[in-house]
Design a protein around this nucleic acid. Structure first.
Length: 603
RNA sequence: GCGCCCGUAGCUCAACGGAUAGAGCAUCGGCCUUCUAAGCCGACGGUUGCAGGUUCGAAUCCUGCCGGGCGCGCCA
C-alpha cells in the first residue's frame, strides 16, 4: 500500500464512518461557497451523506444541494456544481460527480476502502462495536411468559428478537439490562396449583373429574409426580371431601370460572395455607426453572428475573395504587376501584382492584413500570406479543399520571410466528396443552436455524416459519447459506495448510492494493458497511437488518469464491486475498454472534 | 363499531423521504479434470391494494376508502 496518503489514512483514524468524514468535507465546501457568493445557507437537518446503491452512483451520495436549492434560489444541479467546486482535496476521495436531480456522488479511493480490512484484523471480535450509544442505560424486558407452562413457539420469536436486540444495543455502545417479569402472583397461579394438586390426587388413586378450566398439559403430571416422590401422601385428601357441594363445571351446565375458583377455595381449606403454598411454590419453581433452562439452551440470558409476588410482598403494588389515589386518579364504581386512565389518552378507565379485593394484573404492571422508571434508565423497552398491544395505552397512562417521562418507554410489538410444515399450517392452542413448545421446535430444527428464522423478518411483519425449510440443508435455507460462507473460508485455510503454504497477514495487508478485481471491490464495500449497519439496526430495534446484511455479505463472498482462486502462486496477491477472506470470516462471525447463531468451521 | 399492526414480482420478504423499487424461492437456460455445487452466472417477472394531499422528490409522511391479522373482561 502506498504510504503517501497523509494522516487521514493512518491506521489510527480509519474511515469506518466515512459518512462523517465526507459530511465534514461538504460542510467546508458549503462554507467556502457561501463566503464566495456572499450568501448564508445551512441545511435544516444537518448534512446528510448516504451509501450509494451501486449502479454507477458512487460509494456515497449527498442530497445537500437539493435540500438547499429553494433557499439558495438556484437549480439544484447548479448549486451542487458550485459546492463541489469548493470541496477541499482529500485522500479519501477519488472523484466527485454531480448526478441526477442534483446528487453529489463520491467515489472513494481504493486505498481508503481497503483499509477496512486492516481494521477488521486489528479489532477482531470488536469490529463493528462502537460507543455510539455513549453508555446510556437501557432496560429491556422480553418474553415474560406466565409461569403456568412451558414456552411455546409464540414466545420463541420474542426470545430471539429480544436477545438479539440486547446484543445489538450493547454492540452499539449501550449498557443493557435484560429482565424477565415473572407473573408468579394472581389467579392463574392458583389455577396452576389446583391443576397440579388434582393430578397428584389422581396419581394417588383418587377418582375425580378434571376441571374444564384447569391446565392439562403433560408437564402438570410431571410436577405432580415430583411432588409425590418428595412428599408421598402428605397432600392426600379424599375425593369425596374435595367434591362435596361444588358447583357444576362447564361440561355439566355450570360455569368454568366459578367451578375452578370453588376448587381453589376448597383446596386452600382442606390443605391449609402452609401445604397449599408448598404446592404453589413447587409448581411455580418447577416451571420457572424449566423456562430458564429452555431459554439458556437457546442462548437467551437475563440479568434479573423480576418476581411479581416479590413486588406485591414488598408493598409495591399498594404503594403505586396509593400514589394514584393521592393524585386523585382512583375512584370507586360498582364496588371496584378504577384508575382514570382515560384522562391520559386511554380509551376508557381500567379496574385496578376488583370488588372481591384482589388487585388486577394491570395493577401489578403499573407498580412494575413505576419501579422500572425509578431505577434510573434512560430508555425502557418492552417487547410484547402483538396480542398485548391494548396494554400500551393504559401503561403509558399510569406513568403519565405519575408524571414520568413516558417518551423514555418504547413498546416493541412482535407479531406472531405461524408454523408451517411444508404448506401445512400447524395449529396451536394454549390451554388444551396441544401447542408446539419452543423446546420441540429447537430440537427438531436446531438452535441456529430457529434463531435466524425468528429474526429474519421485521418484527411487525407476520412470520411464516417453515419447519421443512429451516431444517433443509439446501441453498433455499438462508442460515446455511451464511454459515457456509464462514465454513468455506475455514476450508480454504485448511487447503492452504495441505499445500504447505502459510498466510503472512502483514504481507497481505501491505499488498491490499492488489485487490483490484470488481468482485474484490464489491466485497470490501460490503465489509465497510458493517459498523453502520450495527448502529442502524440497534437504534431502529431491527435485528433483521443484520440477518439481511449477512446474506448479502455471504452472497458477495460466494460470488468472489466462484470467480477467483485464492491460493494463487503470487505470494503478495495470495496473502492479500487471504487477508480479505479472513476479514469476511471475522465479520460473519461477529454478525452471527449478535444473532446468537454459531459460525461453524466446517459443514 | 373503536383501537393497533400489515397490504411491494406467482410465493416469502427488503428498501435513513431520494436516482432505473431490490433479494431469495418458484419457472426457464447455462457452469464441477481447479480452494466444499449447502455454490456461481443468465433470463423471466411490478400501476408498491385504491383515490386524493404534502414535497424539488412518496412504497415510505397525512386523509379517506378496500382487504387481512390482533385486541377491545372486575382474564392474564
Amino acid at each position: 500500500m502506498k504510504t503517501d496518503n497523509g494522516p487521514l489514512l493512518s491506521t489510527r483514524k480509519l474511515p469506518l464512518f466515512m459518512k462523517e468524514d465526507l459530511a465534514a468535507l461538504l460542510a467546508q465546501a458549503l462554507d467556502n461557497h457561501c463566503k464566495a457568493a456572499d450568501v448564508s445557507l445551512s441545511p435544516p437537518d444537518g448534512i446528510q451523506v448516504e451509501r450509494g446503491r451501486g449502479s454507477g452512483h458512487g460509494d456515497y451520495a449527498s442530497n445537500l444541494a437539493m435540500q438547499l436549492a429553494k433557499v439558495a434560489k438556484m437549480p439544484p444541479r447548479d448549486l451542487a456544481t458550485a459546492i463541489v467546486a469548493h470541496l477541499p482535496a482529500s485522500p479519501l476521495v477519488e472523484k466527485v460527480e454531480v448526478a441526477g436531480p442534483g446528487f453529489i456522488n463520491f467515489f472513494v479511493t481504493a486505498q481508503a476502502a481497503a483499509l477496512v480490512i486492516e481494521k477488521i484484523h486489528e479489532q477482531g471480535a470488536e469490529f463493528g462495536r462502537s460507543h455510539h450509544g455513549r453508555g446510556s442505560r437501557v432496560l429491556l424486558e422480553f418474553v415474560s411468559a406466565n409461569p403456568t407452562g412451558p414456552l411455546h413457539v409464540g414466545h420463541g420469536r420474542g426470545a430471539a428478537f429480544g436477545s438479539s436486540l440486547a446484543n445489538l444495543l450493547e454492540a452499539a455502545g449501550h449498557e443493557v439490562h435484560r429482565e424477565y417479569y415473572v407473573n408468579d402472583a394472581g389467579r392463574q397461579i392458583h389455577i396452576l396449583t389446583a391443576s397440579v394438586w388434582l393430578r397428584y390426587l389422581e396419581h394417588r388413586g383418587e377418582s375425580l373429574p378434571f376441571p374444564v378450566n384447569a391446565y392439562r398439559g403433560d408437564y402438570i403430571h410431571d410436577i405432580a409426580r415430583d411432588l409425590e416422590a418428595a412428599h408421598g401422601e402428605r397432600f392426600r385428601v379424599a375425593a369425596s371431601e374435595l367434591l362435596a357441594n361444588l358447583p357444576a363445571d362447564a361440561n355439566e351446565g355450570g360455569d368454568k370460572e366459578q367451578y375452578i375458583d370453588a376448587v381453589i377455595a376448597r383446596a386452600q381449606i382442606l390443605l391449609g395455607t402452609d401445604r397449599y403454598q408448598e404446592i404453589l411454590r413447587a409448581a411455580v419453581a418447577a416451571i420457572t426453572r424449566d423456562i430458564e433452562e429452555d431459554l439458556a439452551a437457546f442462548g437467551v440470558h437475563y440479568d434479573r428475573w423480576f418476581s411479581e409476588q416479590a413486588l406485591v410482598d414488598a408493598g409495591g403494588v399498594n404503594n403505586a395504587l396509593d400514589r394514584l389515589e393521592a393524585a386523585g386518579e382512583i375512584y370507586e364504581k360498582e364496588g371496584a376501584q378504577w384508575f382514570r386512565s382515560s384522562h391520559y389518552g386511554d380509551e376508557k378507565d381500567r379496574v385496578v382492584k376488583r370488588a372481591d379485593g384482589l388487585t388486577t394484573y394491570f395493577a401489578s404492571d403499573i407498580a412494575y413500570h413505576l419501579d422500572k422508571f425509578e431505577r434510573g434508565f434512560e430508555q425502557i423497552i418492552d417487547v410484547f406479543g402483538a396480542d398485548h398491544h391494548g396494554y400500551m395505552a393504559r401503561v403509558k397512562a399510569s406513568l403519565a399520571a405519575f408524571g414520568k417521562p413516558i417518551e423514555q418507554l418504547t413498546f416493541r410489538l412482535v407479531q406472531f410466528a405461524i408454523l408451517y410444515r411444508g404448506t401445512e399450517r400447524m395449529q396451536m392452542s394454549t390451554r388444551s396443552g396441544e401447542f408446539v413448545t419452543l423446546r420441540e421446535l429447537r430440537e427438531e430444527v436446531g438452535n441456529d436455524a430457529t434463531r435466524f428464522f425468528y429474526v429474519m423478518r421485521r418484527p411487525e411483519q407476520h412470520l411464516d416459519f417453515d419447519l421443512e425449510l429451516a431444517k433443509s440443508r439446501s441453498n433455499d435455507n438462508p442460515v446455511y447459506y451464511v454459515q457456509y460462507a464462514h465454513a468455506r473460508v475455514c476450508s480454504v485455510l485448511a487447503q492452504m495448510g495441505e499445500r504447505n503454504l502459510e498466510h503472512d497477514l502483514t504481507r497481505g495487508i501491505s499488498a491490499l492494493s492488489r485487490l483490484t478485481e470488481s468482485h474484490e471491490q464489491a466485497l470490501i464495500g460490503e465489509l465497510g458497511r458493517y459498523p453502520e449497519i450495527v448502529v442502524a439496526a440497534a437504534e431502529a430495534h431491527e435485528p433483521h437488518q443484520i440477518a439481511q446484511y449477512l446474506r448479502e455479505l455471504a452472497a458477495a463472498f460466494h460470488t468472489y469464491y466462484n470467480a477467483h482462486p485464492f491460493l494463487v502462486d503470487d505470494p503478495d496477491l495470495r496473502d492479500a486475498r487471504l487477508a480479505l477472506i479472513t476479514a469476511v470470516r471475522q465479520v460473519i462471525r461477529n454478525g452471527l454472534d449478535l444473532l446468537g447463531v454459531s459460525a461453524p468451521e466446517s459443514m
